[in-house]
Nucleic acid binder design. Structure first.
Lengths: 130, 130, 130, 130
DNA sequence: GTGGTCTAGACCACG
DNA sequence: GTGGTCTAGACCACC
């Protein structure tokens, strides 16, 4: 895998969301072993310390668990996993709505804008398909 | 005015949006003189360097213009001002939609979620009012 | 027996105290044969290397003795066994008292705190029983 | 200041408690600026990264706050500071009591032991003074 | 000057 | 082989 990271966001954060997405999409499930620090470091061409930091944070969020000498595992508490998607969506939503409010849009306008934009995007995609 | 800034976002960015909002809301209009660096620095209790940086960026975006010896002014090109709101909204929208896509939501789901969330928020506000 | 170990303390240390407690409580007495490495490893579902390490340390402390070809035995020197409890208690006590001193508590305060806490705990237990 | 660290406990943890103690003893109070990363690193002869880690953790516990470009400060929320001593004492106490229970001591015995030990220590100190 | 992040590489304890 | 910690040194954004 070759990824280029956004230079404005800490790499360890970007890797965190990569892993979270892998879990959300079911690519990784509860109890799965996650790649070792060194493995991921090589795969993503980053420094092991950066990956270490990634997992340290994921652990603090309860998403992975460490078993000494054995490796790290996706938490077996399904509840936590279930929540990841919900939380991430919520974060996006709030930043968006608060931002729009700050620009002076009211509720109806916000819904309208989203509605229209999405529709446009659908058409774009259909054009792509044709 | 006494504001506490979000520690995780550069202050100069936060001040930039403050000024942009003043323009969007009509509080400041094309051709207006903007406060001097020192003035704003005192008003917002920040370091003058920070304000300097703010204007430097606003200038890069064409939103303010410097007239040597006279001060800084909101650009007189109406077109640019008209675009600020649109651009800011667009940025928010794109981050949001791309983020949701990344989480595996499809178009219909996104619209639904926004719709429901907004409705909930409306109710919350009404409760606050009662 | 199925135990889950505290992830932050080396498993071999945790097993050491398990064995020491068995001796303190009289479950195992001087001269008793201790389980073999493989046996204990299966019983506690750990890696044999870990058990090996456990015994290595217990041997260093003079608590078990190895008889080549025969197995390991709780030391027959009663004096050592007698001391285990005393030493373990002493260690706990010292860490505690030194810690409290470091926090600025004086002798009277320390005794008071212990006294009160214990009393509270007694009440809690009584509530549990009711 | 020249300190030798306990090799079995992460240095960043040891420095954390040093700072907490400085706060508990009133040596540092709410709102005080804490030494910069580089400063402390030189003073304690450790690597700046280690100090960085220390503050990162203290920040997560709400004990210090970071102001970008200005430095770090002891939190101004008095409540948090008030709690540090209580929490640290509680931790010590619990480890102690649980440990003693594990060794088979009952409540009365624990209180007695503490009582006697403390008295002994008092005498020792008096001897030192004479 | 301050903190935040990253790379590079090392050592250790653990299983 | 695995993670945890530490040192060394660098670059950057921010104030």
């Amino acid at each position: 895998m070759s990824i280029e990271f956004d230079t404005n966001i800490p790499i360890y954060i970007q890797i965190m969301t990569i892993i979270k997405k892998r879990i959300i999409t079911g690519e990784m499930v509860a109890g799965d072993k996650v790649p070792s620090v060194r493995e991921l470091a090589t795969e993503l061409k980053t420094n092991p310390n950066t990956i270490q930091r990634t997992f340290q944070e994921l652990e603090r969020e309860g998403i992975v668990e460490t078993k000494r000498g054995l490796g790290r595992y996706v938490t077996s508490e399904e509840a936590i996993i279930m929540n990841i998607k919900k939380e991430m969506a919520n974060d996006l939503l709030n930043t968006f709505i608060e931002g729009m409010r700050g620009l002076g849009f009211n509720n109806n306008e916000i819904v309208d804008i989203v509605d229209n934009t999405i529709k446009e995007k659908v058409e774009e995609q259909q054009e792509d398909v044709r």
